[in-house]
Simulated scan of single mutants.
Amino acid sequence: MFSDFLKRLTAPDPAPLGEDDARLALAALLVRIARSDRDYAPAEIRRIDRVLKTRYGLTDQKAEELRSAAETLEAQAPDTVRFTRAIKDTVAYEQRESVMEALWSVVLADGSREDEEDALMRLVASLLGVNDRDSNLARRRVEQREGG
């Protein structure tokens, strides 16, 4: 399953992803950002599940299943570019800002921001075509909403 998905992502001119594959790509990107500081904290896992549940209207079990599949995919994926390209190609700019909010919420879930997370967030924002200002605004909205 994952090898086919990765082949589609790494094709020279990949077709836009369907809804299920786009969900998986976003979930894998959330996992990647959570793992970027080498501390995949329970708070980050819970936050990923909550983001997936809220964003896609999933049950707790379906959100956990999607995250589990994303964990496997993320471990096998060679780079972040593939996930971001898949998301950028299927998600309008305004909605990519909400993707940035989801990513920031995972980064901030464990109460600390590590250099590795900040560096990956800058890269992801750039790859998604989200400018620094909008990424910063997304982070601030999450901090206000989450009480950080």
Rank of each mutant, 00 (worst) to 15 (best):
Q76T: 05
V130T: 08
A63F: 06
G129K: 02
I33A: 10
A138C: 08
S126A: 11
R122K: 14
F5Q: 09
T72R: 13
G57Q: 03
E146K: 07
I45K: 15
M100E: 04
D60Y: 13
G111K: 10
D60F: 03
V106H: 06
T10R: 12
K7I: 02
V51A: 01
L123G: 06
E44N: 05
I87S: 09
Q144I: 13
Q61F: 02
L30K: 05
D79Q: 12
I87C: 00
R133G: 03
T84V: 09
A69Y: 02
R8A: 15
D132C: 00
A75R: 14
L26K: 10
E146M: 15
T90G: 13
S112Y: 09
L9H: 09
R133H: 11
L24W: 08
A34Y: 02
Y40V: 02
V99T: 11
D132W: 05
L128I: 09
A75N: 05
K7R: 12
D37G: 13
E94V: 13
L6C: 08
G111S: 04
M100I: 01
R8M: 06
F83V: 03
D118S: 13
K7N: 11
R145Y: 11
A43D: 14
D132P: 15
P78S: 14
D49H: 11
A102I: 02
M121H: 01
R47E: 10
T84E: 12
E117F: 10
E71V: 12
D118W: 01
L29C: 12
L123A: 12
R35Y: 05
E71F: 03
E146Q: 15
T84G: 04
K53Y: 00
A69F: 05
A109E: 06
G111W: 10
E19A: 11
E97M: 12
Q61Y: 05
A86E: 02
E71C: 06
L58Y: 08
A41D: 15
F2K: 10
Q95W: 00
